[in-house]
Design a protein around this nucleic acid. Sequence first.
DNA 1: CGGTATCCACGGGGATACTG
DNA 2: CAGTATCCCCGTGGATACCG
Lengths: 120, 120
Amino acid sequence: MRQPLDPDLFARCATVRTPIQIGDKWTSKIITCLLDGPRRFTELQVPLRGITPKVLTESLRAMERDGLVTRTVYDEIPPRVEYELTALGRTLLGPMAACCAWTREHLPELLDARAAYGAR
Amino acid sequence: MRQPLDPDLFARCATVRTPIQIGDKWTSKIITCLLDGPRRFTELQVPLRGITPKVLTESLRAMERDGLVTRTVYDEIPPRVEYELTALGRTLLGPMAACCAWTREHLPELLDARAAYGAR
DNA sequence: CGGTATCCACGGGGATACTG
DNA sequence: CAGTATCCCCGTGGATACCG
């Protein structure tokens, strides 16, 4: 819950476009980051290697708008903002798991098909 | 198997961007069209209301490249080409069903969240 | 710390017209 | 019939810089 996010959390994720996509480019990774409890903006930036603040803000705002996360501002100095998964956000975990299972099981076939297609 | 595709096959599909996406904009619909057997190019265009030939070609080529469909050319006049789901293509039916189930179950909450967000 | 403000490159997707 | 060929628009996402 309170341990920092692994900077290499997504190091072993497939770089190729998987056929199943949850939300925008970053949505599923953000959800993964929030699994163990609320996280701060800069905390999220760590495993999301190189994401720019603008893009992270856009993704988080879209998720907030759709009711997937809540955004809580604590009136302190320095400022503190925490993002947390909602119940609705958690309902995406099932589809996400199904997506990962599909990828584990069938990505090799897809890559084989691509290689075969490219070899003509 | 051999009956024509319903022109209104997707009439009742949600127009809003659902959070879960299979392939590109048309992939899941094309897969649905191919469920009962091979279909021809112009046959696919009917339920895919208004899709331009260029875009349909792009989607089908991408699916062929990824091993989701086969493209069979019959050397006749007039030309005949048939697209058919592969075994790999059929493996996406599970995730697609999960996606539809999620939408049926949770889309109202998402729309409520959007409405509430918009009302501030 | 948690963002905005600009600017920009790229790719998906659509409109229209033409062809083997 | 089953596409190509062009042209174009727009949204996503990245780079960079600045701010309360």
